[in-house]
Amino acid sequence: MSSNISIIIADDHEVVRDGIRARLLGTSDLKILAEAKNGAEAVDLVQRHSPDVVMLDISMPVMNGLEAARKIRENKHDCKILMLSIYDATEYVQGAVKAGANGYLLKEADAREMLSAIRSVAAGGLYFSAKVAPSLMPASFAPAIDEEQSRQHSNRINGSVSATPPPADPSRICAYGLSGRERQVLQGIAGGLANKEIAEKLSISVRTVESHRLNIREKTNGGNTAHLTRIATELNLI
Protein backbone atom coordinates (compact mmCIF):
# COMPACT_ATOMS: atom_id res chain seq x y z
CA MET A 1 0.00 0.00 0.00
CA SER A 2 1.30 3.44 -0.89
CA SER A 3 2.07 5.97 1.83
CA ASN A 4 -0.94 8.03 0.79
CA ILE A 5 -4.33 6.52 -0.01
CA SER A 6 -6.27 8.79 -2.36
CA ILE A 7 -10.03 8.83 -1.86
CA ILE A 8 -13.19 10.07 -3.55
CA ILE A 9 -16.32 10.39 -1.39
CA ALA A 10 -19.76 10.09 -3.01
CA ASP A 11 -22.95 10.78 -1.04
CA ASP A 12 -25.96 12.92 -1.89
CA HIS A 13 -26.19 14.37 1.62
CA GLU A 14 -23.73 17.15 2.35
CA VAL A 15 -23.89 16.53 6.09
CA VAL A 16 -22.81 12.91 5.52
CA ARG A 17 -19.90 13.99 3.32
CA ASP A 18 -18.92 16.52 5.96
CA GLY A 19 -18.98 13.80 8.60
CA ILE A 20 -16.82 11.43 6.57
CA ARG A 21 -14.40 14.20 5.73
CA ALA A 22 -14.11 15.15 9.38
CA ARG A 23 -13.25 11.56 10.29
CA LEU A 24 -10.55 11.32 7.63
CA LEU A 25 -8.90 14.73 7.84
CA GLY A 26 -5.73 14.73 9.86
CA THR A 27 -4.96 11.12 9.04
CA SER A 28 -1.49 11.15 7.52
CA ASP A 29 -1.93 8.24 5.10
CA LEU A 30 -5.23 9.40 3.58
CA LYS A 31 -5.92 12.11 1.01
CA ILE A 32 -9.38 13.20 -0.16
CA LEU A 33 -9.20 14.05 -3.86
CA ALA A 34 -12.81 15.06 -4.54
CA GLU A 35 -16.44 14.65 -3.48
CA ALA A 36 -19.54 13.77 -5.49
CA LYS A 37 -23.23 14.19 -4.71
CA ASN A 38 -24.49 11.47 -7.04
CA GLY A 39 -23.30 8.32 -8.77
CA ALA A 40 -22.79 9.93 -12.17
CA GLU A 41 -20.47 12.53 -10.66
CA ALA A 42 -18.59 9.77 -8.85
CA VAL A 43 -17.99 7.87 -12.10
CA ASP A 44 -16.73 11.05 -13.76
CA LEU A 45 -14.43 11.90 -10.84
CA VAL A 46 -12.96 8.40 -10.83
CA GLN A 47 -12.27 8.80 -14.55
CA ARG A 48 -10.51 12.11 -13.96
CA HIS A 49 -8.59 11.44 -10.75
CA SER A 50 -7.95 7.66 -10.65
CA PRO A 51 -8.23 7.35 -6.85
CA ASP A 52 -7.09 4.39 -4.80
CA VAL A 53 -10.50 4.13 -3.12
CA VAL A 54 -13.95 5.44 -3.96
CA MET A 55 -16.55 5.47 -1.19
CA LEU A 56 -20.03 5.12 -2.71
CA ASP A 57 -23.34 5.66 -0.95
CA ILE A 58 -25.85 3.14 -2.30
CA SER A 59 -28.90 5.43 -2.45
CA MET A 60 -28.09 8.47 -4.60
CA PRO A 61 -29.97 10.42 -7.30
CA VAL A 62 -29.16 10.40 -11.03
CA MET A 63 -27.21 7.14 -10.65
CA ASN A 64 -27.26 5.03 -7.49
CA GLY A 65 -24.15 3.53 -5.93
CA LEU A 66 -24.64 0.05 -7.36
CA GLU A 67 -24.98 1.43 -10.88
CA ALA A 68 -21.93 3.64 -10.33
CA ALA A 69 -19.88 0.67 -9.12
CA ARG A 70 -20.83 -1.34 -12.20
CA LYS A 71 -19.96 1.59 -14.46
CA ILE A 72 -16.57 2.04 -12.79
CA ARG A 73 -15.82 -1.64 -13.35
CA GLU A 74 -17.05 -1.47 -16.96
CA ASN A 75 -14.62 1.43 -17.48
CA LYS A 76 -11.82 -0.89 -16.30
CA HIS A 77 -10.76 1.27 -13.37
CA ASP A 78 -8.82 -0.70 -10.78
CA CYS A 79 -9.68 1.56 -7.84
CA LYS A 80 -11.14 -0.12 -4.78
CA ILE A 81 -14.85 0.40 -4.16
CA LEU A 82 -16.15 0.72 -0.62
CA MET A 83 -19.94 0.89 -0.46
CA LEU A 84 -21.61 2.98 2.27
CA SER A 85 -25.14 2.36 3.44
CA ILE A 86 -27.59 2.52 6.31
CA TYR A 87 -29.03 -0.78 5.07
CA ASP A 88 -27.78 -4.19 6.18
CA ALA A 89 -30.21 -6.22 4.03
CA THR A 90 -28.81 -9.22 2.18
CA GLU A 91 -30.06 -7.89 -1.17
CA TYR A 92 -27.97 -4.74 -0.80
CA VAL A 93 -24.81 -6.55 0.28
CA GLN A 94 -24.97 -9.19 -2.42
CA GLY A 95 -25.89 -6.55 -4.98
CA ALA A 96 -22.77 -4.61 -4.00
CA VAL A 97 -20.56 -7.70 -4.34
CA LYS A 98 -22.06 -8.47 -7.74
CA ALA A 99 -21.43 -4.87 -8.83
CA GLY A 100 -17.73 -5.26 -8.02
CA ALA A 101 -17.43 -3.69 -4.57
CA ASN A 102 -14.44 -4.55 -2.39
CA GLY A 103 -16.25 -3.74 0.83
CA TYR A 104 -19.52 -2.75 2.46
CA LEU A 105 -19.45 -0.35 5.40
CA LEU A 106 -22.51 0.63 7.41
CA LYS A 107 -22.79 4.36 8.04
CA GLU A 108 -23.11 3.73 11.76
CA ALA A 109 -19.42 2.74 11.78
CA ASP A 110 -17.17 4.83 13.99
CA ALA A 111 -14.03 6.57 12.75
CA ARG A 112 -11.79 3.68 13.74
CA GLU A 113 -13.77 1.13 11.72
CA MET A 114 -14.03 3.47 8.74
CA LEU A 115 -10.27 3.93 8.66
CA SER A 116 -9.76 0.18 8.99
CA ALA A 117 -12.15 -0.48 6.11
CA ILE A 118 -10.43 2.03 3.82
CA ARG A 119 -6.97 0.72 4.60
CA SER A 120 -8.08 -2.89 4.18
CA VAL A 121 -9.54 -2.43 0.71
CA ALA A 122 -6.68 -0.14 -0.35
CA ALA A 123 -4.25 -2.91 0.58
CA GLY A 124 -6.07 -5.35 -1.69
CA GLY A 125 -8.31 -6.97 0.89
CA LEU A 126 -12.06 -6.93 1.39
CA TYR A 127 -13.98 -5.41 4.29
CA PHE A 128 -17.57 -5.97 5.40
CA SER A 129 -19.20 -4.63 8.56
CA ALA A 130 -20.06 -7.32 11.10
CA LYS A 131 -23.81 -6.88 10.71
CA VAL A 132 -23.69 -7.78 7.04
CA ALA A 133 -21.44 -10.81 7.53
CA PRO A 134 -24.29 -13.37 7.24
CA SER A 135 -24.95 -12.11 3.70
CA LEU A 136 -21.53 -13.40 2.71
CA MET A 137 -22.01 -16.92 4.00
CA PRO A 138 -22.30 -19.69 1.39
CA ALA A 139 -26.00 -20.31 2.09
CA SER A 140 -26.75 -16.78 0.94
CA PHE A 141 -25.25 -17.43 -2.49
CA ALA A 142 -25.85 -19.80 -5.36
CA PRO A 143 -24.26 -22.04 -6.37
CA ALA A 144 -23.24 -23.21 -2.92
CA ILE A 145 -19.61 -23.94 -2.17
CA ASP A 146 -18.18 -26.76 -0.11
CA GLU A 147 -16.88 -26.51 3.43
CA GLU A 148 -13.24 -26.11 2.44
CA GLN A 149 -14.07 -23.28 0.05
CA SER A 150 -16.15 -21.66 2.77
CA ARG A 151 -13.20 -21.77 5.13
CA GLN A 152 -10.99 -20.18 2.50
CA HIS A 153 -13.54 -17.55 1.50
CA SER A 154 -14.47 -16.29 4.98
CA ASN A 155 -12.32 -14.97 7.79
CA ARG A 156 -13.64 -12.90 10.69
CA ILE A 157 -11.37 -10.05 11.72
CA ASN A 158 -11.99 -7.60 14.59
CA GLY A 159 -15.77 -7.97 14.52
CA SER A 160 -15.97 -7.58 10.76
CA VAL A 161 -15.60 -10.00 7.89
CA SER A 162 -12.79 -9.91 5.39
CA ALA A 163 -13.98 -12.26 2.68
CA THR A 164 -13.97 -13.23 -0.94
CA PRO A 165 -17.49 -14.57 -1.45
CA PRO A 166 -18.29 -17.04 -4.22
CA PRO A 167 -20.15 -15.77 -7.30
CA ALA A 168 -23.73 -14.78 -6.58
CA ASP A 169 -26.63 -16.09 -8.63
CA PRO A 170 -27.82 -13.09 -10.69
CA SER A 171 -31.39 -14.32 -10.45
CA ARG A 172 -31.32 -13.74 -6.69
CA ILE A 173 -29.87 -10.24 -6.87
CA CYS A 174 -31.99 -7.15 -7.38
CA ALA A 175 -30.02 -4.25 -8.84
CA TYR A 176 -31.82 -1.79 -6.60
CA GLY A 177 -31.54 -3.82 -3.41
CA LEU A 178 -35.27 -4.54 -3.28
CA SER A 179 -36.44 -7.31 -0.99
CA GLY A 180 -38.72 -10.06 -2.24
CA ARG A 181 -41.77 -8.39 -0.70
CA GLU A 182 -40.81 -5.03 -2.19
CA ARG A 183 -40.57 -6.62 -5.62
CA GLN A 184 -44.08 -8.02 -5.14
CA VAL A 185 -45.38 -4.58 -4.19
CA LEU A 186 -43.58 -3.02 -7.15
CA GLN A 187 -45.19 -5.60 -9.42
CA GLY A 188 -48.60 -4.61 -8.06
CA ILE A 189 -47.89 -0.93 -8.58
CA ALA A 190 -46.82 -1.57 -12.16
CA GLY A 191 -49.98 -3.59 -12.65
CA GLY A 192 -52.09 -0.57 -11.75
CA LEU A 193 -53.27 -1.89 -8.39
CA ALA A 194 -54.18 0.45 -5.57
CA ASN A 195 -52.50 0.02 -2.17
CA LYS A 196 -55.61 -1.69 -0.78
CA GLU A 197 -55.68 -4.15 -3.67
CA ILE A 198 -51.99 -4.95 -3.24
CA ALA A 199 -52.54 -5.45 0.48
CA GLU A 200 -55.39 -7.88 -0.13
CA LYS A 201 -53.43 -9.78 -2.75
CA LEU A 202 -50.38 -10.18 -0.50
CA SER A 203 -52.37 -10.60 2.76
CA ILE A 204 -50.65 -7.66 4.43
CA SER A 205 -51.92 -4.35 5.78
CA VAL A 206 -52.34 -1.21 3.71
CA ARG A 207 -49.92 0.53 6.07
CA THR A 208 -47.30 -2.12 5.29
CA VAL A 209 -47.84 -1.62 1.56
CA GLU A 210 -47.37 2.12 2.03
CA SER A 211 -44.14 1.50 3.92
CA HIS A 212 -42.84 -0.80 1.18
CA ARG A 213 -43.83 1.76 -1.44
CA LEU A 214 -41.79 4.46 0.30
CA ASN A 215 -38.81 2.09 0.55
CA ILE A 216 -39.09 1.25 -3.14
CA ARG A 217 -39.09 4.91 -4.11
CA GLU A 218 -36.05 5.62 -1.96
CA LYS A 219 -34.10 2.62 -3.22
CA THR A 220 -34.86 3.27 -6.90
CA ASN A 221 -34.73 7.05 -6.70
CA GLY A 222 -38.22 6.75 -8.13
CA GLY A 223 -41.02 9.25 -8.23
CA ASN A 224 -44.32 8.67 -10.00
CA THR A 225 -46.01 5.44 -11.01
CA ALA A 226 -44.73 5.70 -14.58
CA HIS A 227 -41.13 5.69 -13.35
CA LEU A 228 -41.77 2.76 -11.02
CA THR A 229 -43.39 0.88 -13.89
CA ARG A 230 -40.23 1.37 -15.95
CA ILE A 231 -38.20 -0.04 -13.05
CA ALA A 232 -40.54 -3.03 -12.85
CA THR A 233 -40.10 -3.61 -16.58
CA GLU A 234 -36.33 -3.42 -16.18
CA LEU A 235 -36.49 -6.08 -13.46
CA ASN A 236 -38.75 -8.29 -15.60
CA LEU A 237 -41.60 -8.05 -13.10
CA ILE A 238 -44.18 -7.33 -15.79
Rank of each mutant, 00 (worst) to 15 (best):
I5C: 03
S6V: 03
I8V: 12
I9N: 13
I9H: 12
D11E: 13
D12P: 09
H13C: 12
V15E: 09
I20H: 10
R21L: 10
R23L: 15
T27K: 14
L30Y: 06
I32G: 06
I32D: 06
D44I: 14
L45K: 13
L45T: 08
S50A: 15
D52N: 08
V53G: 11
M55T: 15
L56A: 06
I58C: 04
S59Y: 09
M60E: 04
N64K: 07
A68H: 15
A68W: 15
R70N: 05
K71W: 03
K71P: 01
K71S: 13
K71Y: 03
E74L: 11
E74K: 11
C79N: 14
K80W: 08
I81N: 04
L82D: 03
I86W: 09
I86R: 08
Y87T: 02
T90R: 09
E91M: 07
E91Y: 03
V93Q: 00
A96G: 11
A99W: 00
G100K: 09
G100R: 05
N102A: 12
G103I: 01
Y104I: 06
L105D: 03
E108Y: 12
E108K: 13
A109Y: 13
A111T: 15
A111Q: 15
R119S: 12
S120W: 08
S120D: 10
A122R: 01
G125V: 07
Y127S: 01
P134D: 03
S135Q: 00
S135A: 10
L136Q: 03
A139R: 01
S140P: 00
F141L: 00
I145Y: 08
S150I: 02
Q152K: 07
I157R: 10
I157H: 07
I157T: 07
G159S: 04
T164N: 11
R172H: 01
A175I: 02
Y176N: 02
L178G: 05
L178D: 08
G180R: 15
E182S: 11
E182T: 03
L186G: 09
Q187E: 15
Q187N: 14
I189S: 05
I189T: 08
A190F: 13
A190R: 13
A190D: 10
N195Q: 12
K196R: 13
A199H: 08
A199P: 09
A199V: 05
E200N: 10
K201A: 15
L202N: 05
S203L: 15
I204M: 06
S205C: 09
V206G: 05
R207G: 14
R207M: 13
T208E: 02
V209W: 05
E210A: 11
E210V: 11
H212E: 06
I216M: 06
I216E: 03
T220V: 07
N221K: 04
N221E: 04
G222E: 01
G222I: 03
N224T: 06
N224E: 11
H227L: 05
T233Q: 12
L235D: 08
